[in-house]
């Protein structure tokens, strides 16, 4: 029996702002369930004494110095926006303040 339900798929789709049709929903139930199945397989492994992998990159401490470089021309930044007023990107009105 599938552990992933259509409700789960709808929840994740909602978080990702995706609208799914019936067919896609059914397919994702299967695919997401298969992913969980794969995780179950991994869980069978004995990982005692194995250091948890926290990050895919092996390298650490890749930094830049705190030096100001050149930014891009504003016209160029605004150019591809659906709407702007020459200074700001314009978006539909925002009603409630969100997280910072």
């Amino acid at each position: 029996m599938s552990r992933i339900t259509e409700k789960d798929v709808d929840y994740v789709a909602g978080l990702a702002r995706l609208r799914l049709d019936e067919e896609a929903r059914a397919r994702l139930v299967r695919e997401m369930d298969a992913i969980l199945g794969y995780m179950d397989k991994l869980n069978e492994l004995n990982t005692e004494g194995v250091e948890p992998m926290m990050h895919a990159l092996e390298m650490t401490n890749v930094f830049r110095d705190d030096v100001v470089g050149e930014s891009m021309p504003r016209d160029l930044a605004l150019e591809t926006a659906p709407q702007h007023d020459g200074a700001y990107f314009i978006v539909p009105p925002i009603m409630d303040p969100e997280e910072s």
Binding site: D66, Y88, F89
Partner: peptide
């Protein structure tokens, strides 16, 4: 939340100057 007083931004070389004209300290 406190804005750290650095010259450039956290992940790019754009200036952090608060008083700049809108969208002039921007990059890809």
């Amino acid at each position: 939340h406190v804005e750290l007083d650095t010259r450039s931004k956290v992940f790019c070389a754009c200036s952090t100057d608060f008083h700049a004209e809108p969208n002039t300290n921007v990059c890809p």
